[in-house]
Amino acid sequence: MGCFVVVIVFREVHKAFGENKVLQGFSLDVNDGETIAIIGYSGSGKSVALKHIVGLLEPDSGEVEVDGELVHALDAAGLRALRSKIGYVFQFAALFDSMSVADNIALGLRRQGLSEREIGHRIEESLALVDLAGSEEKFPIELSGGMRKRVGIARAIALRPQYILYDEPTTGLDPVTRAMMDELMIRVREKLGVTGIAVTHDMKSAYAIADRIAMLYHGRVRQVGTVDEIQRSHDSVVRQFIEGRPEAAADAGATQASL
């Protein structure tokens, strides 16, 4: 199938927290320009996997490669350079609560050394994209959960990153806003040409935004394929998950039932 350039590689990544073995040989290739969705039960290690890409976590064994560089082997300067290419949308937004919305977005831009005028422009633009124009001076505490989430997305896309990692960007949003966010992610990709990884529980949004879908199960990739392939999957675990049948959780012995 054509000549894909692989830009992010997980190679046999193992990661445990004490007794809790989270990733157990997780391998995944992400191609340049695609959006890949990672699905899986709550607690299966999707967030943990994402954090390896930006070096927030280090693999116990195995390796993660971004743009041909091993993340855990980078020195401080190398890691900084890598991180400035990546926009990270945190699962719970992780806004800086002592700062206004505008400052939250400006912080990363200042680090890139942009002029204040350019920064102001980007803030306005990215807030408009997430439908929060005019919220510059608000503080995170004054926002609803869904609004915080959207500010988190604005903060990431304002950086105009090469890669964007969304950790459950649409969980907790109302259906209309959710559809809007899906559209936004598609637009961001078309406009900026970013490569994206989106962790999600929401199959509808996975089908809408992703080229390929990978299911994380028991610390490894259970199946990865195009949206079509996943929809027509014969794998019982994948089927149960995408159809959202309750016995799946029990069968699967997942850590927690997905809510």
Partner: peptide
């Protein structure tokens, strides 16, 4: 609340 992680990802 992962604000420290967020700072790190902003380089």
């Amino acid at each position: 609340t992962e604000q420290v992680d967020a700072l790190e990802t902003l380089a």
